[in-house]
Write a protein that binds this DNA or RNA. Sequence first.
DNA 1: ACAAATGCTGTATGACACACAGTATGTCAA
DNA 2: TTGACATACTGTGTGTCATACAGCATTTGT
Lengths: 112, 112
Amino acid sequence: MSIQDNKIEAEMNRGFLQIMVLLALETPMYGYMMLRFIEEIGYSIEENTLYPILRRLDKNGWLSSRWDVEHDRPKKYYKITEEGKMIRKKLLSIRQKQDGIISKLLKEVNNG
Amino acid sequence: MSIQDNKIEAEMNRGFLQIMVLLALETPMYGYMMLRFIEEIGYSIEENTLYPILRRLDKNGWLSSRWDVEHDRPKKYYKITEEGKMIRKKLLSIRQKQDGIISKLLKEVNNG
DNA sequence: ACAAATGCTGTATGACACACAGTATGTCAA
DNA sequence: TTGACATACTGTGTGTCATACAGCATTTGT
């Protein structure tokens, strides 16, 4: 992957990553677990990228977190909050609206 | 629209706006014309937002531009370049992949 | 015993959406 | 005829977020 590609992907990830995290955390997970989960469902995200998002969404009140210190190494479990669900809904509706615009424009490009 | 909503929309716009502009400029347009065009097809974008995008994509070589000084006030017409079309394709494919992830996760949320 | 995987934290950096300020012409109604 | 509003741009902030980079500690596999 070229540097340019990387930059483009980073830009395209904005907004999307939040939606993905907010959807995934319907089931409680800790960071490292999520990384593997995301790979499983066919996407890919860096440790560098995921941890700051979790912290930020937690700080926003869109996620709640608790430390599990009873098994193994300490793990920080996150799950979506009610506020997070409202935000998720909003984000999804914006995304849907955008998809509508894209398909409208795409039709014109293909028929032009 | 609250300040919070505004911030969220701005974030969701990232990546999307480039796609929209690159699709719209299959037909040459100048900035102000595009603003009205975008409203027509059901989206909304600020002058503040569109002009810098056009400049940036132009600078990247994804758009080409020429001044029309023959009619009325000077207008800067933009259209997509071949490189722009390649980028557009890439952006669309990333977007599509993301949409796939979202619908996969959404299914689990709704069935859970 | 040593590498690799696991599981996190904190701080820096760069790109982009958007804000704000500015410039100038054209149109239309009071 | 003047003043508001639409048209049509430019230039330079600012804040947020994805990602980079550095660090720390435990566990597992060989």
